[in-house]
Amino acid sequence: MAKNRQTGKSRQRKESAIRFFFFSVALTSIITLALIVVFLFMEGLPIFSKVSVYDFLFGRYWYPTDDPPDFGIFPLIVASLAVTVMSAVISIPLGVMTALYLAESASARLREWVKPIVELLAALPSVVIGFFGMVVVAPFLQEIFDIPTGLNLFNASLMLAFMSVPTICSISEDAIYSVPIELKEASLALGATHWETIARVILPASLSGISTAIILGMSRAIGETMVVLMIAGGAAQLPSSIFDPVRPMPASIAAEMAEAPFRSDHYYALFATGIVLFAFTLLFNLVSEYISNKYRQVGAATL
């Protein structure tokens, strides 16, 4: 009996130690993130002593090195949203349709080959994708559409869509594949065709996971730096067409931070731009969490 008690106490100590270890790791991650956010706000907020929040967010001119400088990031915000929306228009159908094919139509052997390849695409370095867009896609677009430059909004959107498809496809495929087989069998037993079952049963039942996949793909697109820095064109202007050069927020931060004097207005403005970018990314994540929880709570009622 005494030996059993000692064994039980030893297990409790081990479980407590393991629990404390994982708690410490989680707490360290939270503290690190909090410190990054605090630093971001400390370095970004001073710019608003020189320019109002409204002029900063909705100013149409970004000339931080002029005399006097202009710190309007509205063209940068529009560029970020434009490349994100356009890449989503391309990547969402491709990602979801590929996921549907892998989960519902592809043979098990083909699925074993295709899914790792799709997931491997997510591991491609962004600089490689940007280089491909610069060397291959840009001259092609310039020749086909007879435009002054192939480094533009459309090219950046194509490459961001290429980067987002693996994320959307992989998570959506897992969500579709996890739908209980009983739902599918019940639909087929009632006389529905395979595609009717997909449209009216499987997709609604997996909508939570698919929505999360889409939002995560868009979050990656709006926060991507290297690709848009290399192939978006680098022009801080409001685009009038999809073939205009643009400069999204991440590209502006990456391109100008090295040349901005430390603790100058330009330096503070770039950190304030980072705050805006952080707000957009946080908004996407909150929307993803809301949609995921909403449809998870509804459950079978979505059918």
Rank of each mutant, 00 (worst) to 15 (best):
E256C: 00
V179P: 01
G72L: 03
P166N: 13
L100I: 13
K9L: 15
W113F: 13
A156M: 08
R220V: 04
M134V: 11
F243L: 02
V276P: 11
Y267R: 00
I231S: 09
R200I: 12
E143W: 11
Y54F: 12
R247C: 01
Q237I: 09
S240F: 11
S49R: 14
I168H: 05
S126L: 02
I73L: 08
K14Y: 00
R200H: 06
P139D: 08
L183T: 13
S10E: 11
P46E: 07
A254D: 08
T84W: 02
A272S: 04
S211R: 05
A189Y: 11
S52Y: 00
A255H: 02
Y268R: 06
L277D: 06
R263H: 03
L35S: 04
D66R: 08
P245V: 07
M257G: 01
G95M: 15
A269K: 03
H266R: 03
Y61V: 15
A17M: 12
P204C: 09
F22D: 02
A251D: 00
F132S: 12
V51H: 00
A192K: 09
F140N: 12
R5N: 10
F56K: 10
F74Q: 05
Q297M: 15
P64G: 01
A82W: 03
P261W: 00
S241M: 10
L158A: 12
A186I: 08
I144H: 14
M159Q: 09
S10L: 10
F278Q: 08
I30R: 00
D244M: 05
G217K: 05
L283S: 15
Y63A: 14
S240E: 15
Y290M: 09
E196I: 13
